[in-house]
Amino acid sequence: MPKRVETLVLHDSSTPVIGDTEHGGAVVVTTLDTLFNQARANALWPLTFGLACCAIEMMSTVAARFDLARFGSEAFRATPRQADVMIIAGRLSKKMAPVLRQIYDQMPDPKWVISMGACASSGGVYNNYAIVQGADQVVPVDIYVPGCPPSPDALMYAVIKLQNKIKHQAMKTNKSMSILELKPRELEEVKA
């Protein structure tokens, strides 16, 4: 899927961006950003969205052996209105895709998506007419977890990595704070 350029934060030193002191943002706002990001990152409530066998590993992640509650993510919610992060666990069929999109739209901002397992991330072995070849064709995915299915510790690693991402986001735009984090290839796309 080609990368959409409008998702990037376009600015230079002459255009101040909220939450970015290096490029002229206010100090108060960046401090608030840190506070909000800590609160958001350490209380990620996942949405119960088990689609296939990956859901078994997702349930195992919150059980006693691995205990996702240590990272504040034990409260799985059955309603999208109370959830922060959607864990797409399993293959996403084309019939399920509009449902997934609707549930994602019902989640309140800020929201994040973990694509768990080979099938949700790319279709995996199911390269056929029935399966969406990657959940990022339907919703914006923040982090991908390879594996078939990923073990509970692999999912926990993804949650920790997602927390790191959230801690570096600007509060208002919900986008990455600095353009310096982008890779050179993307910068070339922006210039072109």
């Binding site: 899927m1 990657g134 990022d136 923040d142 977890v145 990923p150 690693y157 993804a158 991402k165």
Partner: peptide, 12 residues
């Protein structure tokens, strides 16, 4: 080594 999760599709 199971720690393979990443942010971008291209990284995989």
């Amino acid at each position: 080594d199971f720690e393979l999760a990443n942010y971008e599709r291209e990284d995989f």
